[in-house]
């Protein structure tokens, strides 16, 4: 009985809070600040990574980004080969 009454109260609180939070999170000034914070944090991380990469590449070793690019190219090559296989398996129109 008490649980049921508490649950009704909780549901009312939950819905009211969710509606209030939705309004808050739609507020452009809050969103603007959050976006600026995220962007600043990401730029800082990118700058730190770039510094490390530059240092790493001075000793002539491939950077993490180099390896990612090479792996991606390999995957692309595999996909293109599958494309070619598919095309060659299709019946060709007679000349």
């Amino acid at each position: 009985m008490i649980w049921e009454i508490w649950k009704q109260g909780f549901t009312a609180w939950e819905q009211a809070t969710a509606q209030y939070m939705e309004k808050v999170l739609n507020n452009t000034s809050i969103l603007g600040s959050a976006g600026a914070l995220l962007t600043a944090a990401m730029k800082t991380k990118a700058a730190t990574d770039k510094m490390m990469t530059t240092w790493w590449s001075t000793i002539g070793l491939p950077t993490r980004r180099d390896q990612e690019r090479a792996l991606h190219k390999l995957n692309q090559l595999e996909s293109r080969l599958y494309d070619l296989e598919e095309r060659s398996a299709q019946p060709q129109p007679r000349a």
Binding site: E22, L25, N26, T28, L31, G32, S33, A34, G35, A36, L38, T39, A41, M42, K43, K45, A46, D49
Partner: peptide, 19 residues
């Protein structure tokens, strides 16, 4: 709300990708 967030001018997608 996702549209509102992603259209926030201070949110730079490129910076997240770069990082």
């Amino acid at each position: 709300i996702l549209t509102t967030w992603t259209r926030t001018p201070t949110f730079e997608v490129g910076s997240v990708l770069e990082a």
